[in-house]
Write a protein that binds this DNA or RNA. Sequence first.
DNA 1: ATGAAAGCGCTAACAG
DNA 2: CTGTTAGCGCTTTCAT
Lengths: 339, 339
Amino acid sequence: MKKIFLKDIADALNLSKTAVSLVLNNRGDENKISKETQKRILDFAKKNNYRPNQMARGLSLGKSETIGLIVPNISDIFYARIAHFVEIKAKEFGYNVVFSSSNENPAIEREMIYSMLNRQVDGLIIASTQKNDEDILKLKEASFPFVLIDRYYPNIKTNYVIVDNLGGTKNMTSHLLKNGRKKIGFISIKSQLDALLQRRLGYESALTENGFEIENNHIKELDPFKYQDEMKGAIKDMVQKVNGLDAIVFTTHYLAASGLRELKLLNIAVPKKVAIISFDELGAFDLVEPPITASKQPVEAMGNEAVEILVNEILKKELKIENERVLQTKLLIRKSCGV
Amino acid sequence: MKKIFLKDIADALNLSKTAVSLVLNNRGDENKISKETQKRILDFAKKNNYRPNQMARGLSLGKSETIGLIVPNISDIFYARIAHFVEIKAKEFGYNVVFSSSNENPAIEREMIYSMLNRQVDGLIIASTQKNDEDILKLKEASFPFVLIDRYYPNIKTNYVIVDNLGGTKNMTSHLLKNGRKKIGFISIKSQLDALLQRRLGYESALTENGFEIENNHIKELDPFKYQDEMKGAIKDMVQKVNGLDAIVFTTHYLAASGLRELKLLNIAVPKKVAIISFDELGAFDLVEPPITASKQPVEAMGNEAVEILVNEILKKELKIENERVLQTKLLIRKSCGV
DNA sequence: ATGAAAGCGCTAACAG
DNA sequence: CTGTTAGCGCTTTCAT
């Protein structure tokens, strides 16, 4: 594993660094370097396991062939799966990926954005805290290639790949209604995230369109960092105090998991007494008792499209086409809403 | 967001690049640069949002302040959680992390190792396919800082952070025995991974030490990529053909999930007829019906320790101390083994 | 067809 | 205390 440099191979072969560099970058023909010389170079490089120093290369070229991925939390299975597909697709295009978690903290997100810029990533995929208008705007003004994923800024025109949150939740709520539920609760996270707002709107519009009232005490929005503690109270309130509540829409997989946990502890029969339904799902939602009906997000497509848009953006430099993609979720019907 | 360089600030302040560089790297005092000059530099840099180009810096310094993480699959919740803790700890030490998935393919793993070396990562954390002795040896010979995580090479002396697979599984099997199970099956993945071998040994030693025979038809090792298809047959074989089999040890969380799925489809009562127990767990194992008893891996400690060892290694350069850590799993007793 | 030389942005001897 | 200079390893223009 002794390191060998461009110069070493030029010296060994009695050629100039230029020739070697050109050939190694597939520009031999184009520069009319004899087939034979090319072969000598290629062979020597392979034999000695030549590997260019990417920092030097990057410095010279002004690019790193790396893309940055910033998510709220890489250990959330949803973002882990996004990362997985981003990685695969990025690799197809020859890019590596560096990742960072913002932990929903806009200050950290900002720091991560700049840290990645310093490291000369060629582009950024961001599942933003959505409290960072300023930096997103700066990226945009600087024409730095980036695409928002999962969460976008409704007021800023950017590339993004998101999901139809309103439609998905409306669909979920309608499903409950179709199954005869009359008093449907809604448990979400207290947050400014547009996705969460849309999910609430979806829930509300399904109710309204079906002739139901929106009752404020049917709606709970929990603290993002204390939802586990608050869940029991929320469930008690809704099921025991709000008379006859017979279903709950959960806006995230972890809320649904937590909610089901509490329902079980409180000995409330699901779906008999209360039906539940979840936006997005955990790996084992089909094994849970009862298996939870959920709107599944198209993670693979999200990852793929984000990378495609980004790479497109990186390569086109100036001539940008803004891409705004809204993908559909898919309702997986299981037992938690009754038969 | 106009980019500003070291030279720009030197020019603007009528100083040399040296002075600026020194001050910005906190070596102002050490080089006896006047407090006042230092302040001017710092202020100007902050005001103009100076951010050094890390590729240039890295090239010059011969390091990147980045560590590489190679795992089989970042979308496996186990590795996602490892990645999460690795990231947090790395950040504490000022390192970024780039990740790659090998998809259990040693050729890809090799490619990723070299790709990361090219990108001048300062160190590597690898959950190896364990079929890459050659490259691991090369890293070792080259004294390149790295630590193995989750999977190690028993025959190669390296730094590693793993888990007591044998002990964990032995513990699990004993737990079943203590609960009165007499005919315990074992479902694993067909693989050369030492972890899996150890888990089998743990199972076997628990049986032997308690005076039970090891029956070959109580043991199934499924194809890593087709285990879902093979699971039904395995379960049928064991439960319906192997007379009176009353428990199954699963060596991974996804096997347990898949196994439970099939047991349910076959209408086999868990734990009444067959108890199950899992090595490691999925997020919702406490919600599953029945909640699955599982040996939980200390992911946070694994990630933390791997980074600590690695950083230590990176900074100490020559003077290495080999660290070999074996952490304990924790048995979470739930309902799937009977009361 | 091939090579010399400058330059990417930063760090660090060394000299003053 | 500060500045000059060389150099990290690679690419690329411009001569030859």
